[in-house]
Write a protein that binds this DNA or RNA. Structure first.
Lengths: 133, 133
DNA sequence: CATCCGCTTGACGTTTACGTAAGCTGAACG
DNA sequence: CGTTCAGCTTACGTAAACGTCAAGCGGATG
């Protein structure tokens, strides 16, 4: 029981995912729970990987990209070249995200302006402004 | 011919989208090209809307969300009630966007940290860090 | 023993945003 | 006139990331 592995349900509760999701990730070779008979037991490694998966998703990586990153990460003592490649990818992604954030801020400002504009139309009781075009 | 409308192909070339995409957007009521016989003619309004659509997509909005925003942008001579409803939607969208921006910022910070971390592993020429755990 | 519980493996369903192919039409070209 | 070209409609296909059954299994419980 205290052997440091978690059942699928415990995983779900801990990380707020569904069983289906965990099985799906296993089928995609993102996780490798061991089997005790039929049942899956998720090790510490699986938990670490799941955390990375979930974070990766927040970053906007696809599961396939995440798998590749995990593989590289896993091969910790591999070629520097590959590691560098990994960080290169990550930096590209980061640049993307920053760009996206800036555009998003712009859009937020735009929309905020629109809303101010709209309130001037709405609040005066029943003013019609048909002549617009 | 210089009547200020574009054919579907001209639209595609100008905005780098496929005909399928434009027809799709029309079917989703994002664009309203006029018909000359069978053919679609895209007006200035359609072009403005398309620009907004493409921008919205870069922000990560769904087409449905974009449609709602577009409705807001040109809700001209509508009823107050509907207008208020529209602005309500817009404010919800805005809240969504701000949330999204915050999450994005969080992710950016996280990833930035990760990258710092990674550089310490990469840059020292061939240092193995197997003893980490 | 019957039943329930948690878990398992298929396998089909869902959504979004189009791609792609089939078959038709009207205008234009040689 | 035949063909090409651009465009049209209809409709099935696709990828990602799971959701949602259906059916079955081993263990615990009353």
């Amino acid at each position: 029981m205290t052997d440091n592995t978690l059942t699928i349900r415990e995983m779900c509760d801990t990380y707020d995912v569904t069983p289906r999701t965990l099985r799906f990730y296993e089928s995609k070779e993102l996780l490798f729970p061991i089997r005790e008979g039929q049942k899956r037991l998720f090790t510490k490694r699986d938990r670490a990987r799941l955390k990375l998966i979930l974070r990766g998703k927040r970053f906007g990586f696809s599961l396939e990209q995440i798998r590749q990153l995990l593989d590289l990460y896993d091969a910790g003592d591999q070629q520097q070249v590959q590691l560098e490649r990994t960080y290169e990818l990550a930096r590209e992604r980061l640049a993307d995200m920053e760009l996206q954030r800036d555009e998003l801020n712009q859009a937020i400002d735009d929309l905020t302006e629109q809303l101010k504009w709209g309130e001037r139309i709405i609040t005066p009781s029943k003013q019609n402004k048909k002549a617009a075009e």
